[in-house]
Design a protein around this nucleic acid. Structure first.
Lengths: 118, 118
DNA sequence: ACCCTAAATAACAAGTTAGTTATATAGTTA
DNA sequence: TAACTATATAACTAACTTGTTATTTAGGGT
């Protein structure tokens, strides 16, 4: 549930629950998943050019991430699912591919809240 | 290794390594350990008065934390060891007791770095 | 319809985490 | 020294995580 402030610009979000914070921390407590988030900051410099979807706009397909992680496609798929369930990345399924990109607003919402609550 | 700025006031610390960041995230990815950190913000309101060491100054003894967590003393000891190894709490062994208190500078160093790097 | 590709899911093995009880260690006190 | 207390460690078990390979699902192209 979210509301908007007077200017309707910045979303004013409910604070993340303790359980959500814990899920996010678990999602981040993995060198592989931290790497994925790091790479997704700048897809162009970390992944080969994508002939189908726009990397900047929709994100990077699972295959590319699996190759760079050097683990199997199913293992990669699970890492991405965990990140996605934690709200740290957004999945965009398009024509057989699934593209993943960072969810910047949730990432910063998390770090802001952690800074004040921890 | 740390150096100090011109006024010698605030410590200027080396940034935490990726591996240290990951250890901290793993230490935080536990509801039990998050609770401990929360309780240690205000020992007086969460623990019985301590006749031996000063709670504010040295921290809270293992027993009290074990009782409040409602898990065994050894399990509690391990949780505290993980937090301590991650640098998030400081252990002060005094006369048979070990007191644990939050390491505020490391906690804020971590949240600051996470905010910029994540 | 058939084949091909990408991704997700299922089933399983290996390693890690988190709990337990029992024991060892260290300091204090009678 | 012996007894008592607080904590840490050892040994074990159960549950969770993370990897694998095999299979299923879903789309697109011929």
């Amino acid at each position: 549930m979210k509301t908007f402030d007077d200017e309707g610009q910045r979303a004013i979000l409910e604070p993340l629950t303790t359980i959500e914070m814990e899920h996010i921390l678990k999602a981040l407590a993995s060198s592989r998943r931290l790497l994925i988030l790091e790479w997704l900051k700048d897809p162009k410099s970390h992944f080969p050019p994508q002939v189908h979807g726009d990397q900047e706009k929709h994100g990077v397909c699972t295959q590319f991430i699996a190759e760079k992680l050097a683990v199997s496609q199913p293992a990669t798929s699970r890492h991405l699912k965990l990140l996605s369930q934690a709200g740290l990345v957004t999945a965009s399924p398009v024509k057989g591919w699934t593209y993943y990109r960072r969810n910047e607003s949730n990432l910063s919402r998390f770090t802001r809240q952690l800074s004040t609550e921890l």
